[in-house]
Design a protein around this nucleic acid. Structure first.
Lengths: 323, 323
DNA sequence: CTTGACGGTGAAATCGATTTCTGACAGGGT
DNA sequence: ACCCTGTCAGAAATCGATTTCACCGTCAAG
């Protein structure tokens, strides 16, 4: 790894001049050319580490997500990346696995590596962003807005989405509509369940025996579905609050020969890789990529010094009717 | 961001002592305690940037993949992450989008940030790893082994997998077996197609009109399938060389009412989120996570100084029969 | 009582880039 | 001829941690 000093020596100038060439300051054409030749010659790349240390900031933003294997979050990541790259920033992806400890570790890294900012889909509700806030590190919450701290957030209207999905089941004539949602300490999970409750109230059984808190994963969805079907009076329809759990739920329904249209199914969030649509289910489409691009834009604004009070942007979901 | 100097001042010791406390060198219990108290008090975190600059290496490894939205690569990423984290390393994910320029940029970053090592699923065959090699930066190739350079690699037997998948179609009695594979400059694509050719030779039409080079993406798979079906004598079966393209291909087959078992379908690689298995297709299961864990282990060995000649590890695929 | 070893500590050099400060020099106006 | 302005370039300080080197006690062996 050649350094700026070696390049300077080779080009017969001072390190300061080399730095100026690479940062677009005023340098005479001849010296600039000499520097560029020497740099190319020895394939010199300025050390980001040294640069970051000196400037106390880097062009890297951290994207902290709870589950890298969920297509929703990878689509979101693509959105973030597109915007960030266009602005000259690199994105590093941090997978927390819904684990607060891992999350905290990554936030620590973001700080101690003086990253430019953080976009976070918090694991659980009570993520500790206090360190970032105290250090004035720009933060944008996405998909889930953490409890208690006031930061920019980009979310969807979970309650309205849950309500609309459930409402669709009501209109299809189902009577006992169950709900499988995520962990009770995750805001998106409870809000979607609230939407379900809104829609079933007065339109069927609101009985909380039909409500299951699972884990936003395939197996959790399957387990919850099995439990529901084992009830004395099993539900005739189910609203599943995320994409992965719907996979599990549908598997169980399939095993028991109760696939739609026998059972009504509405899902919050899409599964991008279904080769065909053999089964009629209602889907609340999530603008995953837009969540990412929007969050990235907000973050870039903050990074460039914008310090207006925190904003919350609510994107719209779209309901795909049964088809 | 408090520095080691401020902690030293608060604890009444020298910065050297603070450093020693945090790195487990010999320090008297009282001073150590004082340092720890002061550090906690002002919630001090050592600057990774400074540390990295001084040590000329960081505990971060870069994982460079061509498509973060492909479940295969995210599963692989999980594997890498599990092993890396257990060894105290952080993983940063770099998505190249099959773009050589982006890839080169990320490799440059890895170098200039003095990362501990790189695991790369190369975009296209002729990725330029020469910079890494010249700088002796540990590299492990995964899934695809780059052309021309001799580095550790963890791969699967693509040709054997392609042959087995196609052979299964032969045994099911299909006559005109087509092949949809990836870009012709990606090794995995051509090898899988070679496997197809092995199996169809003498067992049906080897006509290269039945061979399509697509892009390893959903839409590419769909387009290729449409073209194949539009042939004067369309194929009665198809071997699709990756998971995403199979989604597109099956969509087209569905639209034309030619879903399996009417058409034979065999796929290299799995789609994890199929809620049910309504259609009988043959799947070559890829050990994605194992590819990741194995690659990470190799890399860690290299990082800790192992300099034996490069190795190639070939993992086994498993054929899931029609079901 | 001297010598050597050793644990504990601080001062200062170091990693590689950026930037301020300063000086040299050229050109234009009076 | 003199001053002022402006451009270009180098010396040196700086970012924050690590580590070498030197030094001081203390204690044990001779």
């Amino acid at each position: 790894m050649p350094t700026i000093y070696e390049v300077a020596a080779a080009a017969g100038v001072s390190p300061a001049t080399v730095s100026r060439v690479f940062n677009g300051a005023n340098v005479s054409p001849e010296k600039a050319e000499a520097v560029r030749r020497a740099a190319k010659e020895m394939s010199f790349t300025p050390s980001r580490t040294a640069r970051t240390l000196r400037l106390q900031s880097s062009e890297v933003i951290a994207l902290v997500i709870p589950d890298i294997e969920n297509p929703f979050f990878t689509a979101l990541a693509r959105g973030v990346e597109d915007v960030a790259r266009a602005a000259g920033y690199s994105v590093v992806l941090c997978n927390t696995d819904e684990d607060h400890e891992k999350e905290l570790r990554y936030l620590d890294i973001a700080l101690s590596a003086t990253m430019a900012g953080v976009i976070i889909a918090a694991a659980g509700g009570n993520s500790d962003l206090s360190g970032l806030i105290a250090r004035k590190c720009p933060v944008v919450a996405v998909d889930r807005s953490p409890h208690g701290v006031d930061v920019d957030a980009v979310i969807v209207d979970n309650r309205a989405g849950g309500r609309a999905a459930t409402q669709a089941l009501v209109e299809q004539g189902f009577q006992r509509i169950a709900c499988i949602t995520g962990p009770s300490d995750v805001e998106t999970a409870t809000q979607r369940a609230d939407g379900w409750r809104d829609a079933v109230t007065g339109n069927g059984t609101t009985d909380d025996r039909y409500l299951r808190f699972a884990d936003f994963r395939v197996d959790g969805g399957a387990t919850a579905m099995s439990e529901l079907l084992a009830l004395p009076e099993p539900p005739d329809a189910v609203f599943v609050a995320n994409n992965l759990m719907s996979v599990g739920a549908l598997r169980v329904l399939s095993e028991q020969g109760k696939l739609p249209p026998a059972t009504g199914v509405a899902v919050f969030g899409d599964l991008p890789f279904l080769p065909l649509v053999p089964i009629p289910i209602t889907v609340v489409h999530m603008p995953a990529r837009h969540l990412g691009t929007t969050a990235a834009k907000l973050l870039l604004e903050r990074i460039s010094g914008d310090d207006q009070p925190a904003r919350t942007i609510v994107l719209r979901n779209q309901l795909t009717p049964v088809g």
